[in-house]
């Protein structure tokens, strides 16, 4: 005798609704593949490409606490906004983001990154300068690579000084796809 999907889902939603979880996650289907989306009480805390749920659950537990559970409903607002983004009807995300575990420099860079508008590009060097570390372009690259919430914090809008796409945590193909969606494939550096 096994637990029915209905009972299983009922418990998961009840656990989330009771506020007993450190982290809730679920998978979201998008044009750039299946994403794992996780949230805490403080907001969206992770978006992962090509997720291996078991490993992700462990890493989420390490960072945010062991009470990690998959549940659909708490992720719905993020899912909805991602859908709208990919349909082209949303150009800004209206989501709280949990950056409690970021180091000060990452925090400063991610904060600047959050202000790069839809369809625009910037460079690693420009972000470094805005974070008052003009020589830290490479460190900015590292921060982009570890961006906890790609797409929502738009590290795909950051390119090399010569306009080359350089790299992307989810793979260059996805970076290209996101920029095409935003109509930003023609470099228009707003530096």
């Amino acid at each position: 005798m096994t637990v029915s999907p209905t009972l299983d889902a009922r418990f998961r939603e009840a656990a989330a609704a009771a506020g007993l979880l450190d982290v809730v996650y679920d998978l979201a289907e998008t044009p750039v593949g299946t994403l794992l989306v996780a949230t805490t009480d403080h907001g969206l805390c992770r978006i992962s490409y090509d997720p291996e749920p078991e490993r992700e659950a462990e890493s989420l537990a390490e960072t945010f606490g062991v009470r990690v559970l998959r549940a659909a409903k708490p992720i719905d607002p993020v899912r909805r906004q991602l859908d709208e983004y990919f349909e082209g009807t949303r150009t800004e995300f209206d989501l709280q983001i949990d950056l409690r575990h970021q180091a000060p420099f990452s925090l400063a860079v991610l904060d600047r990154l959050a202000r790069v508008p839809y369809g625009h590009l910037t460079t690693y060097g420009a972000l470094a300068a805005e974070a008052d570390r003009p020589k830290a372009a490479r460190a900015v690259g590292t921060v982009m690579n570890r961006n906890p919430v790609p797409i929502v914090l738009p590290c795909h809008r950051v390119v090399g000084a010569n306009g080359s796409l350089t790299g992307y945590g989810g793979g260059l193909e996805r970076k290209e796809l996101l920029l095409e969606l935003e109509g930003a494939m023609q470099p228009q550096l707003d530096v």
Partner: peptide, 30 residues
């Protein structure tokens, strides 16, 4: 992570509750 703990034990817990409280096992499970 609670997720792995839950996945591992939920069927056994449900079976035990079916034995103990019969048709009320679903509420007891939650």
């Amino acid at each position: 992570p609670f997720e792995s703990f839950y996945e591992e034990h939920r069927d056994a817990v449900f079976r035990e509750l079916r034995r103990l409280v019969g048709k009320d096992a679903e509420d007891a499970y939650q």
